[in-house]
Structures are given as structure tokens and as C-alpha cells.
Simulated scan of single mutants.
Amino acid sequence: MCQDCGPPSRRSFARFLAAGTGLTVLTACTPEAPKAGTPSSAVPPASTSPSASPTAARATVAARPAPSPTKAAAGKPSRFSLTDPTSPWLIVNKHRPLAPADFAPADLVRPAVATTASGEAALLNSTTAAAAEAMFAAAAADGVALVLASGYRSFAAQTATYNSHVAARGQADADTASARPGYSEHQTGWAFDIADGGGACGFQPCFADQPTAVWVKANGHRFGFVVRYPWMFHPITGYYYEPWHLRYVGVEAASDMLQKGVHTLEEYFGAGAAPGYA
């Protein structure tokens, strides 16, 4: 979700999309807020394997009412949790908050990649950081400059950001511009936003046509990444297209999604759509 997209460009994006859909805009734009929070949880070895087999995790969430399985998710035995924030298959959306809400990864590190972010926003969990380093290096070898624009965002930072939106425009409108605290993928360390070396179309719809976004969309799966909020899948993900927002799920899961033509984690793991807060 975007770190620093200013109100004019985001509102333009919202008007552009809403004009054709008649839907309320549900963006994930959450500018970086002051640093806060201390990591407190560890990532189990099983959840940090980039090449873990993409077997569905439905049996690990028995406490939650299970939705009807999708074709992509059916028939897969359980491997990773969809609710444990240390799991690469964690699903965070407007129906599925983090538990605990103030979760912070214990293994946050600063990846050795080009970045415009500073402080906590330049951090990722160790598994995502290693995969990002490999992906950025491969892109550079192909002549494509990837830049880390926004990584980890603590619960405190997300709270400050969200509350500033509520104070400025009311909660209903704030929910179209900022993820609520405890509902942001950035808090997990599994997700980050990218930009290109020249900063072209940063956090704008036109970024999808930049060489950086084109390369990542075609090659991200090789390193375990998916574009988390794809074009025209906002009724499922709850967020409009963000070609800059990448999410680590592991090489085999990301590759399996591509092979099967499944675009969202909600569909792949049969977790159900989350267009708005439950």
C-alpha cells in the first residue's frame, strides 16, 4: 500500500475508477507516520522457506468459519496458516485483521537494495528482505531499476496515519484512503511498495506501464512475489489496483497462482471476498 501518494493524485485515481463503477473508493494509501513499536514475535523456520510447497492452509483456520473452497484452493492439504502473522500465507484484508492487532515482526532487517524510504519504512522481515535482494539484483541485470519505496509500518504509525485521516474527513471517508490499524499488510513485514529509479508515476495508475512494474508483474513470481491488489479485483481484495504493492507468498505459491491464472490470495486460498470492513 502506498507510502507517500499525495491527496490530489489519489483523489484523481479514485474519481477515475469510481466514474466507471459507481463504487465507493477503497484505497490502501497510507502515508508514512512517526516510528513506533517494538518487534515482539519470531518467525518459525517453517514459515520462512521461500520455496515452500503451495498447499492450502484451510485446515489451520478451523476456528474461523470456512468459506466454500475455490477451484484453485480445493484439494490442497494444510501447510501454512492464513491467520498467523508469521506465516507467508497470511491473509490480511478488511474482513481479516491481524491477531494480535499490534503484531510486529521480530526479525526486521534493512535489505541491501536501493530505497527512498527511511527509518522503519526501510525494513522488511528477513525472509522478504532476502527475496527482495535477489529480485532487485535480477532486475538490475535486465537493466531495470527497482527501488524500495515503503516497507514495514508499525501499528502505532498506522494508528497515527489513520487517525489523521479521520480527523480531517470523518471515518467513512478515511476508510477510502487509509487502512485501519491492524489491517495493513505493511505491518507484517511481508509486503512493500516499489518505485523505479527515476520516480516516474510514483503511486499513480500510470506506474503500471513503467518498465519496473512490467518487469515485476512478469518476473516477481520467480522470487515469491505477487502483485497483491490487481486490476479490477477490488470487489475481492477491497483495494483498487496498486501495481506498486508487492506481497511475498513463496516461490511455489506465487508460481502456482500464475500458472492457474488466479489473481488474488482470497481466491487462491478460498478465504472469501472482503470489499469492505466487516
Score class of each variant (00 low, 15 high):
residue 54 P to L: 01
residue 54 P to Y: 01
residue 55 T to H: 12
residue 57 A to S: 10
residue 59 A to P: 05
residue 61 V to Y: 04
residue 61 V to L: 08
residue 63 A to K: 04
residue 64 R to L: 14
residue 65 P to S: 06
residue 66 A to L: 13
residue 67 P to E: 09
residue 70 T to E: 02
residue 71 K to C: 11
residue 73 A to F: 11
residue 79 R to I: 07
residue 82 L to R: 11
residue 83 T to G: 14
residue 84 D to M: 07
residue 84 D to P: 10
residue 84 D to N: 15
residue 88 P to T: 05
residue 89 W to V: 08
residue 90 L to I: 15
residue 92 V to K: 06
residue 93 N to Y: 08
residue 95 H to L: 05
residue 95 H to E: 08
residue 98 L to S: 05
residue 98 L to Q: 03
residue 99 A to R: 15
residue 100 P to A: 15
residue 100 P to V: 09
residue 102 D to P: 11
residue 103 F to Q: 13
residue 103 F to N: 11
residue 107 D to Q: 05
residue 112 A to Y: 07
residue 115 T to F: 04
residue 116 T to G: 11
residue 116 T to K: 08
residue 117 A to N: 07
residue 118 S to N: 08
residue 120 E to A: 14
residue 122 A to L: 08
residue 122 A to S: 15
residue 124 L to Y: 04
residue 125 N to M: 10
residue 125 N to D: 13
residue 127 T to A: 13
residue 129 A to F: 09
residue 129 A to M: 11
residue 129 A to C: 14
residue 130 A to L: 07
residue 131 A to V: 05
residue 132 A to S: 10
residue 135 M to D: 02
residue 135 M to V: 07
residue 136 F to D: 04
residue 136 F to C: 04
residue 138 A to E: 03
residue 140 A to I: 02
residue 141 A to H: 01
residue 142 D to C: 02
residue 144 V to R: 09
residue 146 L to P: 00
residue 148 L to S: 05
residue 149 A to R: 05
residue 149 A to Q: 08
residue 150 S to F: 01
residue 150 S to Q: 03
residue 151 G to A: 06
residue 153 R to D: 01
residue 154 S to V: 10
residue 154 S to I: 10
residue 155 F to S: 03
residue 157 A to T: 13
residue 158 Q to V: 12
residue 159 T to R: 07
residue 159 T to E: 03
residue 161 T to K: 01
residue 162 Y to H: 08
residue 162 Y to Q: 01
residue 163 N to C: 07
residue 167 A to S: 15
residue 170 G to W: 03
residue 170 G to P: 07
residue 170 G to R: 02
residue 172 A to Q: 11
residue 175 D to F: 00
residue 176 T to W: 00
residue 176 T to K: 02
residue 180 R to G: 03
residue 181 P to K: 09
residue 182 G to P: 07
residue 185 E to P: 06
residue 186 H to D: 14
residue 187 Q to C: 02
residue 188 T to A: 04
residue 192 F to V: 00
residue 193 D to G: 03
residue 197 G to C: 10
residue 200 A to C: 00
